[in-house]
Simulated assay, not measured.
Amino acid sequence: MNAYLFLFLAIICEVIATSSLKLSNGFTQLGFTIITIVGYSASFYLLSLTLKTMHVGIAYAIWSGIGIVLVSLIAWFFFKQSLDLAALIGMGLIMAGVVVINVFSKVAGH
């Protein structure tokens, strides 16, 4: 169960770092640049802890799928970037894939 906790925290750190990367304005805003560097560093460290007990392909599929959806939602709400129907359907399919991996895969590390 710790693997999923570490993975969840890694995803949150990565989403914060990616959002801060947008706000860093090409690393010209020091505060957001620091948040970006610390966030990515923490996310990779937490991912490395996850990979001690979870297959890398499964961890990365969950990481990227949830990360894509969360970053897209943050961009929609906070940066006023639009999402059309195709983008929403695509994100729904990504989330469906994450669910299928976690519920039905024998290698997901249940």
Rank of each mutant, 00 (worst) to 15 (best):
Met1Arg: 08
Asn2Thr: 09
Ala3Leu: 01
Leu5Cys: 08
Phe6Glu: 03
Leu7Glu: 01
Phe8Ser: 14
Ala10Val: 13
Glu14Gln: 12
Val15Met: 04
Ile16Asp: 00
Ile16His: 01
Ile16Asn: 01
Leu21Met: 15
Lys22Glu: 01
Lys22Leu: 04
Asn25Thr: 03
Gly26Ser: 04
Gly26Leu: 03
Gly26Phe: 10
Phe27Ala: 13
Gln29Asn: 13
Gln29Thr: 12
Leu30Val: 14
Gly31Ser: 12
Phe32Cys: 00
Thr36Leu: 05
Ile37His: 00
Val38Thr: 07
Gly39Pro: 09
Tyr40Ile: 04
Ser41Phe: 08
Ser41Ala: 15
Ser41Thr: 09
Ala42Ser: 14
Phe44Val: 14
Phe44Gly: 01
Tyr45His: 10
Leu47Thr: 08
Leu49Glu: 15
Leu49Lys: 15
Thr50Gly: 09
Thr50Glu: 06
Thr50Ala: 07
Thr50Lys: 13
Met54Leu: 15
Met54Asp: 07
His55Glu: 14
Val56His: 04
Val56Pro: 06
Val56Tyr: 14
Gly57Pro: 10
Gly57Ala: 06
Ala59His: 12
Tyr60His: 07
Ala61Asp: 03
Ile62Met: 05
Trp63Asp: 08
Ser64Met: 10
Ile66Met: 13
Gly67Phe: 06
Ile68Phe: 14
Ile68Leu: 15
Ile68Trp: 04
Val71Arg: 02
Ser72Ala: 15
Ser72Pro: 03
Ser72Lys: 08
Ser72His: 04
Leu73Ser: 03
Leu73Ala: 08
Phe77His: 08
Phe78Met: 05
Lys80Thr: 12
Lys80Arg: 13
Lys80Met: 03
Leu85Gly: 06
Leu85Asn: 11
Leu85Gln: 09
Ala87Asp: 11
Leu88Thr: 08
Leu88Trp: 11
Gly90Lys: 10
Ile94Ala: 05
Ala96Arg: 03
Val98Trp: 02
Val98Met: 11
Val98His: 10
Val99Met: 11
Val99Gln: 04
Ile101Lys: 10
Asn102Glu: 12
Phe104Gly: 00
Lys106Thr: 13
Ala108Gly: 11
His110Gly: 06
His110Met: 07
